[in-house]
């Protein structure tokens, strides 16, 4: 049996809504309507909350972590009688994985896009041509320097 890892739980507690994992009493209400659980035997939000309570860092943010299968649908948030907000705990776990460079590449791509352009969808001349065809003005510029200042720690 793995040892409880309180240090990892403290890191989770420090992130917005990460501390809500402490309220979980393992009822399983989050599982019944979870689409990821319906489509994948590898995903079970109740199990993820249990791993969080045990502070199982490797299982939660390691290479084979199931957290990336979450579809972000918020049904678990809706169903939970304890206000655990499993989806928000999972996003908090993703923050830890991202901080430790253990997240899928798409996270860094999106961060780079927001950092450099202030947007997640890249602008190209085609964008404004299609907008013009619809009678729309070109896309408004984003003050990227302001965004970059806010991204600095």
């Amino acid at each position: 049996m793995a040892k409880l890892n309180f240090e990892f739980r403290k890191r989770l507690d420090a992130i917005i809504d990460g501390d809500h994992h402490n309220y979980c009493y393992q009822c399983g209400a989050c599982v019944a309507d979870c689409p990821a659980a319906r489509y994948s035997p590898d995903f079970n939000p109740r199990q993820i909350m249990l791993l969080a309570l045990l502070g199982q860092e490797e299982a939660l943010i390691g290479e084979n972590s199931p957290i990336w299968l979450c579809t972000n649908c918020y049904t678990c948030y809706e169903r939970c009688p304890q206000d655990v907000r499993p989806i928000e705990v999972i996003i908090a776990l993703k923050n830890i994985a991202s901080g430790g460079k253990r997240a899928p590449g798409i996270l860094e791509q999106i961060q780079k896009s927001v950092n450099e352009q202030g947007r997640t969808v890249a602008w190209s001349p085609l964008v404004d041509r299609r907008r013009k065809e619809l009678g729309l003005e070109p896309v408004k510029p984003v003050p990227v320097e302001e965004i970059q200042k806010l991204l600095e720690e």
């Binding site: 992130i15 923050n95 202030g118 997640t120 984003v142 965004i147």
Partner: peptide
Amino acid sequence: LEGFSCCPDPIYFKAGDKMI
């Protein structure tokens, strides 16, 4: 209005750092 950026994205951007 002028100056809006990405909302930002509630999936991948939020998964990077909730505070940012």
